[in-house]
Every structure is written in structure tokens, then in C-alpha cells.
Design a protein around this nucleic acid. Structure first.
Length: 206
DNA sequence: GATTTGATTCTCT
DNA sequence: GAGAATCAAATCC
């Protein structure tokens, strides 16, 4: 079968689907990925790397299989897995997961939240549950370090749902979000308040 | 050097 | 449903 690195070197949408069901382990805590979003730097205005390489997005321009960590709204840390080929920015945002190992540690970390479904629902919560840190930016996921990624079997097509990305103000209508159908950790779709309406005012309802 | 935005989440109304 | 919280990075002049 193809190596994990080979899989991650594909196009962002392919990699995104491949990451569904994968197990991400951070210092002893493991989460099964149930929701992802793809971002391609070149032609995707929603991507942080769209305007070129910057110190913050440098990791996205590196080789596939590395972790890109960024701070959102000064409060939350979100995780991406870089993909594609080196020099061409692309990444997959990990939006939600289910804790499969280290639940006791997550429970303590996320207290007073006791509902496991809420521990890693949403990008910020996922990062919080796994205890990700800004210094984890750039970590190699395939080197067997403190953070490692293990791809699982690809879910059956009928178990995969697809839709528009959440919260982005650009390209808000590109259906580059995938999640496992029925996963309770997946949050309802919320369009960015800054996203321009697609048609001539036909939208606006949810 | 100053200003603005952000791939969010939580709480209150 | 709407607004606040809060830090850093990117953009603009």
C-alpha cells in the first residue's frame, strides 16, 4: 500500500479525504479525525498562504506531513497537516476529532466540560484537547516524535459527507470540507459573517 | 508605525 | 441570533 508520505503528497482535497479516520497522537493523547477542510495556497483566497510565503505560513511551503499551527483570534490554536509537494503551499485543517486514547488527561485538561463530544468539536477545541502548543508548529508527523499521525483505512464513500468550508470569508462556496457522516463532533455549518453573498442576494438564509 | 482582519468559541438576549 | 474576548500577523501609508 502507499506510504503515509505518498498519500500526504497528493492534492489537498484527496489528502483531506484520506485524513478522515486517521489517528493523531500528541504526547500520549490520541484523536480520531472526523472533520477536515482543504486549503490550497496557489489559487485559494481562503488559504493563509494565498498571498505568498510569510514567516507564519512557511511550514505550508515545506514538505508534506508536517504540522502547521496558527493562532486564531488570539485565543485558539488550530492545526493543519501540510500536503502536496514542497514549494507549493497546501494544507488540510483538522476541524474536529474523537478522543480515542488519553481520555482521562483530556477530561482534566478540558474540565469542567464532561461531554466527550464537546472536547474536540471545532478546530480550537481540538487543539485544546490535544494540548497543542505554538512551538509544535512545523513538527514532522511521520518521524515518530511527540506528535504522530497514523492514517486509517479510508472510510466507505457512504460514510463521507461533503460541504462548504466553515467561517471563511473568501471562496466560501467551495465544497472543500469533508466529515464522517453522523459524527456528533461535527458542528453545524456556519458561514463567515464577512463572506460575500454568492448570488445576487438570493442567499442570506441558513 | 498604525490599522485591520482572522480557517473561533462562548455567553447572553 | 448577535456580540464579546484577545493575540499575532499581514497590509497599507
Amino acid at each position: 500500500m502507499a506510504s503515509a508520505r505518498a498519500v500526504l503528497s497528493g492534492d489537498a482535497p484527496d489528502v483531506a479525504v484520506g485524513l478522515l479516520g486517521a489517528a493523531l497522537t500528541v504526547r500520549g493523547v490520541t484523536a480520531r479525525i472526523v472533520e477536515v477542510e482543504a486549503y490550497a495556497g496557489d489559487h485559494d483566497p481562503a488559504s493563509h498562504a494565498y498571498r505568498g510565503r510569510t514567516p507564519r505560513t512557511a511550514v505550508m511551503f515545506g514538505p508534506a506531513g508536517h504540522l502547521y499551527v496558527y493562532r486564531s483570534h488570539g485565543i485558539h490554536l488550530c492545526m493543519n497537516v501540510t500536503c502536496g509537494t514542497e514549494g507549493r503551499a497546501a494544507a488540510v485543517l483538522l476541524r474536529a476529532g474523537r478522543i480515542t486514547a488519553g481520555a482521562d488527561r483530556v477530561a482534566a485538561r478540558r474540565a469542567p466540560i464532561t461531554d466527550p463530544v464537546r472536547w474536540a468539536r471545532g478546530p480550537g477545541n481540538l487543539g485544546a484537547a490535544l494540548g497543542i502548543a505554538p512551538e509544535d508548529d512545523g513538527a514532522d508527523l511521520l518521524a515518530g516524535g511527540a506528535i504522530s499521525l497514523v492514517l486509517g483505512p479510508r472510510p466507505a464513500p457512504e460514510d463521507i459527507a461533503r460541504g462548504p468550508r466553515v467561517g471563511v470569508s473568501q471562496n466560501a462556496d467551495v465544497p472543500w470540507r469533508w466529515w464522517l457522516a453522523g459524527a456528533p463532533e461535527v458542528s453545524a455549518y456556519r458561514r463567515s459573517p464577512r463572506a460575500p453573498l454568492p448570488g445576487s442576494g438570493a442567499d442570506g438564509r441558513r
